[in-house]
Each structure stands twice: as structure tokens, then as C-alpha cells.
Write a protein that binds this DNA or RNA. Structure first.
Lengths: 197, 197, 197, 197
DNA sequence: GATGAATGAGCTTTCATTCAT
DNA sequence: GATGAATGAAAGCTCATTCAT
């Protein structure tokens, strides 16, 4: 038991370090050396726990995204009337998106960059997993009669994209754009679109 | 005249090949050897025309995006009534986004991954340039009284993000999602939002 | 103990190989491949131990020169009367200069050729270190009343130069010039100059 | 005639530029591009006049050294009594050595650095030519009864080495060492050696 | 005679991965 | 389980040289 725990702790240290480095540098620019140093572990230990860089990346992303999804789920449990609930959804997603910027960056931007095909597939699954989760939320909204009768899958993709884009913009231009204003605008657009009634 | 044309032609061949390889493989996985082969020039010629991989990347993105912007501008000249015009805007952007998938992929996804700082800055400028262009279109719509009084900059970011996300989805799941349906859904969302009236 | 020794041994093998190749080919013409082959290690091992070619060069020169200096110092310990002692100094320097031709060649000839500035500075320090060592010997001679009252720094530079030049000449024309004759002539010149009394 | 002159002028411009660049950067670090730029000539023109970099180097050194030798010869014509004449020899050589530092640097320091064998041979000849010239001066001195009966060839090598070394030292430490003091010390050593009478 | 765009062999350096300890 | 010295394939980049104009 002790031994197993010890190794579990090391595994976590590695994943945490990996998440930080991967998100900061991107897959190809992240070096196993740096991850090992940051995790306070010898390089060999990385390979003892994950058989390749790609697999470490895969594990990092997958586990991280699971965490985010469960956090969103937790925070959305509420008894607010729907109009407030939709606003909460938007602001929660923005907050968590920014908080876990490392992972979302990886998950939404590093899709193309020439990683092992097998691993790429894994990353896509994670992304799909996230989209499905959003679609699920939208379906609930439709069932309750608040959300329009549109293709939830596509709508989820659109929602993820719009939030990712706006959050990245906030992080890149923190002076020009306040988070509150961003949430307001997002909420406005997502509620009733661009056009005047 | 002939000499000048010749060098221009070679430059273009290189840029074209670079766009293809960069978008397919991402910056770090794209190899100068492959670009050279695809452009049917010697590797040295790459460096004779662009002093580094980063600069070639930068030139590829910048020139490509300029092309896209001017194409959108061209296609949007029309005398349609506004409701149709907005639909045209959406469908045009989707079409061109998909057509120039190489460049949009690079431009919207390769922002983080450890490229030279100077070049990164350049890429950001290109992205900003595109956002500004969209914002400009939205401002015109506001002036004509069709578009809501929202922050155009943020709205442009949102618009770019939503289109990018949906187009990537179409390309990744060509069987599941037809382009027409995607445009319809996008138009619906962008016109009047997710919520029932 | 064993582990430490092993890495030390490899380091030494590399330095030895590097000294041979650098002196034979000069800094720019020396190839890391050749040094690796000669040291019987993989090229990566060179970089594992020395972070760049320049630094390997620097280490090679510095460590080598230290060795020479301590050898000269050892061999000069003697109780000979001064007149013999001065002859011993000259012949010892000639012998060691020729024996360690690799290093002296590097140290006195490769000063200009476009190496990293930082490393160049290091090489200059080594050279200065050697000159200072000679100056120290001359100062002792002055204290004992045998050596003229001249600027020891300049005299040391002159002494190093004359010996370097003559030794190179011997090595280049081994048939024409015997080492004994060279030492005799050097001793004559250094003792009482070119001019008749 | 006109055409020939024109090409001669270009040849000279190239040689001048080459001397500057080679001496500043050393053979391997000197780039044909830089020489062409400095000579205000297209790169092809370099190859039109000199079939390779090595040959350009060779020509540069040879022609330069010829110039120096004839300058020394000119300046040494004098009717001074010998004691003054020897001092003049030393100070003249120092002055010209420093003035033509480019060439002397090349000629005395770039001998080893992995240039084409054929060219290396050429450079050695130039060096020998210079040594022979000095030896010739010494022989005259011996004939006149002022210079000791030592091997003139070796003595010339020694003289060249000592002057090269001291001059380099002056150039490297211009603040610490005045040229006058250097000439005085050199003259003292070369006249009557290091030892007290 | 003169040019400069084009070439490609060859170099230094990086870094994921392995394996003896 | 854990380590880190050692590896070597692979990549970006340089630059002397060529040749069509």
C-alpha cells in the first residue's frame, strides 16, 4: 500500500508538471527534461510511468479535462430560474476556461501539430467528450423548453468555439477587455444573437 | 521583366508549399526539407528567399490572410436586402474558411507553440488584422441599423471563434455534418441566439 | 567511486581527442564528428559533457595549459648554478612546447579566428596565465640578480614568442634544424643578444 | 587597354577588401559574401577573378607580404652608424608589423587552420620568403661584423617571432604598453639578451 | 566581363529514448 | 522502483561554388 501510494504521488507530480509545461510551451516545445525538473523527478522516472512523451501528453490532457468537466457540473447545480441559470452557465464556463487555460489551450489549439496519430485520436476523443458534455447541458435546456430547437451537437461546437475565442482574447488583451464586459457581451449574443429584433 | 517574374514565381511556389505543409503538420513538425521538396526547389533556396523557418512561416501566414480578407471583401459586395446580406456574410465566411483551411488553421491554432517571439508577434498582428476586418463589417451593419449595439471588437472575436470552431468540426466530421446544415444553424444562432423568444 | 571515475574517464577521453583534433585542424575545421569518433563516444556524449563546441574548445585549452604550466614548474626545480639554470629553462620550455605542440599551437595561433566572444576571452586569459607564469620566473631571476632590469611582462611576451616561433620552425623543418642547435641558438640570443660585444 | 585597366582595378578592390576581412575574421570565418560587399562587387566577380576562396586568400597574402617586404627594404636604406641602424631595423619592423597587422596576423597565425593543402604550401612559402628576407638583413650585418656568428636562418625565425609576439601584445593591450617602451625593451633584449653582463 | 539566384553537401545542435546500475 | 549518463537520428541552417543570362 505504501509503495503504491508513493508511486501514485510521483505520477501526480509528473502530471501536474507536465500540464504546466505543455500548456506554456506547446507539445513540441515542451522538453522532457524540463518536465522532469519541474516534477522533481529523474528523467528515467518519466519513462517508468509513461512510456512516451505522447502518452504523457495524452494522459495529461485526458485527466485534466475530466477534472474540468466535473467542476463545471458541480458549479452548475443550482435552483436559479432559467434566465439566470443560462447566465451562470456562460460565466462559469468563462471562469473555468480561464482558470484552466493551460488545458483548454492544449485541448483546443494543439490539435494539428503533428503528434503521433494514435495520441491525436485520443486528444480528439477528449475534445469530443467536452463537446458532448456541453450538448448534454443544451439538451436539458431544450427539454425544459428554454433552448431553441437546433442541432445540439453543432450548437455545442459553436458554444465551445465562441467561449474559447473570447477567453483567449481576454487573456491576450487583459487591459482592453474586462472579464465582466466579455461575459455580458457573450451572454447577449448567445441569448438573442447579433441582430436587432 | 522576365527575371523579376521568375523570382516572384519561385517565391510563390515556396509560399504555397509552405502553407500546405505548415497547416498539415503545424510549425514544429513541418520540415524545411519537405517544404523544399514540395516547392520543387533546393533547401538553400528556401533560405535564400526567407532567412529562417520562422520568417517563412510569418510570410506565409501574413500573405495568405491578406488574400483571404480581400476575397471576403470582394464577395460581400452586393445589393441584397440586409437579412439576406447577413446570411451571405455567414456563408461566405464559412466557405472561405473551409477553402483556405490551411491558413485559418495556422492562424487560429498555432498561436502558442513556442515560435520566435518576434514572429509570434507578427502572427498576432495578422490575427488582429482579421478581427479588425470583421469588426469593420459589423460597424457598417450597426450604422445601417441592423446590428445590435454591442462591443464590435468582442463581437468580432466571438464571430471568428464560432465560425472557426464550426468549420473545423465540419472538416473533421464531414459525414456527420453537411455544410448547409452548419450554415443554417450558425445563421440561426448568430441572428437570434440560443434562447426561445 | 566507480561511477564518478567512469564519467571522469570519458571526459578525459573527450578532452584528449579534442586537443588532438583542434590542434591538427584548427577550431573551425575541427568537426565534432571527428572528435567523437576519436574519443570513441557518440556525438551526443560530447554535448552531454560540454554544452557547445566553443566550450569544449575552451575547456581543452584551459585544462591543457594548466598541465603544461605545472610540468614546467616541476622540471625547473633544481640546484644548478644560475647560468646552467637559465639554459635549463630554455631547453625545458622548448621540449614541453614541442611535446605539447597541440595545445601551444591552439593557444598561440587560434586567437583571432571568429570564435564566440566569451570563449575568446577565456582563451586570452589562458594565454595571459602562461605569460604571467613566465614573468614570475623572470622576476625570480631578477631578484637573484641574474636577469636584467627590464619590464618582465614584455620580456615574458617576447620569450614566449621567440620560443613559439622557433619550435614551430623546428616542427615544420625537422630535417633542416636539429633541436639541439635550436636550443643553442636560442640560448645564445636570449643570453647576450644578436650583437657582438 | 581600358578594359584591362578596369578589371585590374576590380582585382585590387577585391584584394583590399579580402585583406581586411581575412585578417579581421580569419580564413574560415571570412565569408565570400562579405568580401564581395566590401569590394562593391557581385559575388560572381570574385570567382571570375579568383577561382576559389583559397586562391583568393593565397593571392591576398602573397601580394600583401611582397608589399611589406619592399616597404621595409625602402625604409632601411640609410647611412646611420650600425648601432643606430639596428635600432632602426627593430622600430621599422615593429611599425610596419603594426601598420599591416591584417597581413601579419594572417601570415603568422592562420597557418594551421585547415586550408587546402596546396594553398597552405603557398602560405608557407610566403612566410619563408619573409624569413629569408630577414635572414638576408642579418647576413649583411654579419658581413659588416656587427652581428654575432649565429645561424641566420634560426635567428631570423626568432626575430620574426619575437616581434610578432610583442606587436600582438601591444595591439591587445594598447593602454598598458606604449609602443616606445616596447621598442626599447625589444632593442635591449635583441642587442644584449636577458642576462646581466 | 559581370552578375546574383540557385544549389546541396555538410555542419552544429537538440532531445526523446534506452539501459546498466 | 528509480536513476541519469549515454545515445544517434534528425533537423535547421550556412556558404563556397556554379551557371544562365
Amino acid at each position: 500500500m505504501n509503495t503504491e501510494k508513493k508511486s501514485t504521488i510521483k505520477r501526480k507530480k509528473i502530471i501536474t508538471a507536465a500540464a504546466a509545461v505543455f500548456s506554456q510551451k506547446g507539445f513540441h516545445q515542451a522538453k522532457m527534461d524540463e518536465i522532469a525538473t519541474k516534477a522533481q523527478v529523474a528523467k528515467g522516472t518519466l519513462y517508468y510511468n509513461f512510456s512516451s512523451k505522447s502518452l504523457l501528453f495524452s494522459a495529461t490532457v485526458t485527466e485534466g479535462m475530466e477534472t474540468i468537466i466535473s467542476q463545471v457540473r458541480e458549479e452548475l447545480v443550482s435552483d436559479l430560474p432559467f434566465s439566470d441559470h443560462f447566465r451562470l452557465l456562460v460565466s462559469t464556463m468563462v471562469r473555468l476556461h480561464i482558470k484552466h487555460n493551460d488545458l483548454t489551450l492544449i485541448c483546443f489549439n494543439e490539435i494539428s501539430s503533428g503528434i503521433d496519430d494514435g495520441v491525436l485520436e485520443e486528444i480528439r476523443k477528449v475534445r469530443t467528450r467536452f463537446i458532448d458534455f456541453i450538448a448534454e447541458l443544451l439538451t436539458v435546456g431544450q427539454a425544459k423548453g428554454y433552448i431553441k430547437d437546433i442541432d445540439v451537437q453543432l450548437a455545442a461546437v459553436a458554444l465551445a468555439g465562441i467561449i474559447d475565442s473570447v477567453c483567449s482574447h481576454i487573456l491576450l488583451n487583459p487591459r482592453k477587455t474586462s472579464r465582466k464586459k466579455a461575459v455580458d457581451t457573450l451572454h447577449e449574443i448567445l441569448s438573442s444573437g447579433f441582430l436587432k429584433a
